[in-house]
């Protein structure tokens, strides 16, 4: 009712889990696959699905950092015991409550793996800030 005029927001749902896929049985992996498929199918049917992808494991991650014009490349970071970013969804929802409801349906790992979903609004690219001419304090007077 509040958003009858097509006012929606894009939300990114970041999936954090422990990287334990190797320890999962085939039937557990199949279950997770099916649950993702269902969320994607339902969201697509509602016309709110904007994308979802898994990410490669943190062992395949590479970090790039530019410092003083030098590009530093390092291996990792690795998740070790903590939960790591494993994938994302982007859905278009009228408000946070609906986004949270979708988020609760996204599987975060097998039984023991726990995991959670971080929901963030995507405000879109901001306008390029107008360059403010620099004046001394006296200009304010």
């Amino acid at each position: 009712m509040m958003c009858q005029r097509g006012l929606t927001m894009r939300y990114m749902m970041l999936i954090y889990t422990r990287e334990r896929a190797a320890e999962m049985s085939a039937s557990e992996r199949a279950d997770i696959y099916d649950r993702h498929s269902k969320v994607i199918a339902d969201a697509s049917a509602k016309g709110i699905f904007l994308g979802a992808e898994p990410l490669g494991r943190t062992t395949t991650a590479t970090t790039v950092r530019v410092e003083n014009g030098q590009t530093l490349i390092t291996d990792g970071p690795f998740a070790e015991t903590k939960e790591a970013l494993a994938g994302y969804y982007i859905l278009e929802c009228p408000n946070l409550d609906e986004a949270l409801e979708w988020a609760a349906r996204i599987p975060t790992g097998s039984k023991g793996a726990g995991g959670c979903i971080e929901v963030r609004p995507m405000p879109g690219l901001p306008k390029r800030p107008e360059a403010v001419p620099e004046h001394g304090p006296s200009a304010l007077a």
Binding site: M2, A99, R120
Partner: peptide
Amino acid sequence: QEAGIPFEVPPADR
């Protein structure tokens, strides 16, 4: 405002 928390009474199940 930014996260879109609705200004509504939640539905019965919530």
